[in-house]
């Protein structure tokens, strides 16, 4: 009786180990990728698995990591922000624009005290994020298109501020956080770690974080639950822009200069970090933990390819292929998950 019942009953399925693995695929696959890549480069190159190089990798992923914090919020809501790199760039340029440059720098800059320059730069990126937010929620422009426009707008403001020139000076605080170190640990790594941790705490332990997962998981249901969906979506767009702005300011100090198109590669890198880490492009699944794994996958890959002798032009192709593989896993994991719970 019991056995024939369990065979025909459409009642809740029992979850075996296989079902557990399938539901956790989006977390397991990126972690395995990281281990395999690390093992591969450690064997292929003696200079890869050294303490110095681990420090290098951490420093290399820091700016991407700071930008990826905000982007994780956006992607968890099933939206996208294509303007992150441009906003990072314009914020970095703005903080330099408001700092007194050397006389040989041919920019009509507006010198201000360091704190004022930082606040103005932060206000600028928050404002651009607010424009994204209003376009998305009030006017109803899809985030993909809205932030595509913002990408151009921010690049345009950058161009007007520097007019093809290069600025070097930034306020001392930014300079320290971007290129200084304390006890041998670069400040930029500490800032990235603190922001990632902060993002994780917000997403996991606050009401706002819960709402983000709910809006991403089922937007219709969130609205039928009486959540202010537009406010939540708007907030994540502003958070994303501010994270990008901080990444941009520290990046400028880290690179030692502020110029047009400096951050172009960071758009793909930050989206890749979030998605490779396993956060669902359909929203509601994933988190900062995934983003950290994704950051390391990208960091190990970029760094490792420099350690093994490889055609530098081939690197670009390899990165593209890795991203494609991650996207396939992302979509596939979503389907597996839906099959187990629905």
């Amino acid at each position: 009786m019991a056995s024939s019942d369990s065979a025909t009953a459409p009642a809740p399925r029992l979850r075996g180990f296989g079902a557990f693995l399938r539901s956790q695929m989006r977390n397991i696959a990126p972690f395995l990728t990281l281990i395999v890549l690390s093992a591969f480069f450690a064997i292929a190159s003696p200079s890869f698995a050294t303490l110095d190089n681990v420090g290098n990798i951490l420093t290399q992923v820091s700016v991407t990591g700071i930008i990826a914090v905000g982007l994780t919020f956006v992607i968890l809501c099933a939206e996208i922000d294509l303007s992150v790199a441009s906003i990072a760039n314009v914020t970095g340029i703005a903080v330099a624009y408001f700092t007194l440059q050397e006389s040989y720098v041919n920019i009509a800059n507006v010198p201000m005290p360091g704190w004022a320059a930082i606040l103005l730069a932060l206000a600028l990126c928050a404002l651009l994020g607010l424009v994204n937010a209003l376009g998305l929620t009030v006017i109803g422009i899809p985030s993909f298109i809205m932030t595509l426009a913002m990408m151009q707008i921010a690049a345009g403001i950058s161009a007007l501020l520097v007019r093809g020139q290069i600025a070097y000076k930034v306020p001392p605080l930014i300079s320290t956080l971007g290129s200084g170190a304390i006890g041998g640990v670069p400040w930029i790594v500490i800032v990235a770690a603190v922001m990632l941790l902060g993002g994780h705490l917000v997403l996991t332990y606050t009401r706002f974080g819960r709402y983000i997962y709910m809006v991403g998981g089922n937007r219709e249901a969130a609205e039928f639950s009486g959540l202010n969906v537009k406010l939540i979506l708007g907030s994540v767009m502003v958070i994303s822009a501010v994270c990008s702005g901080i990444g941009g300011m520290l990046g400028v100090a880290h690179f030692g200069s502020a110029q047009q198109n400096e951050f172009d590669t960071y758009l793909l890198d930050s989206i890749a970090a979030v998605v490779v880490g396993g956060t669902s492009l359909f929203g509601g699944r994933g988190g900062i933990g995934n983003t950290i794994v994704g950051l390391f996958v990208l960091g190990v890959l970029n760094n490792g390819l420099d350690h093994v002798n490889i055609d530098s032009f081939l690197k670009i192709l390899i990165r593209g292929l890795i991203l494609l593989a991650a996207l396939i896993i992302n979509v596939y994991a979503q389907r597996l998950r839906e099959r187990t719970t629905d």
């Binding site: 819960r210 997962y213 709910m214 998981g217 219709e220 249901a221 639950s225 629905d342």
Partner: peptide
């Protein structure tokens, strides 16, 4: 339209 199928029961109720 009103429930979160991939979330646990308690989160659906407490929202």
């Amino acid at each position: 339209d009103m429930l979160f199928h991939q979330e646990p029961v308690y989160k659906n109720i407490s929202i």
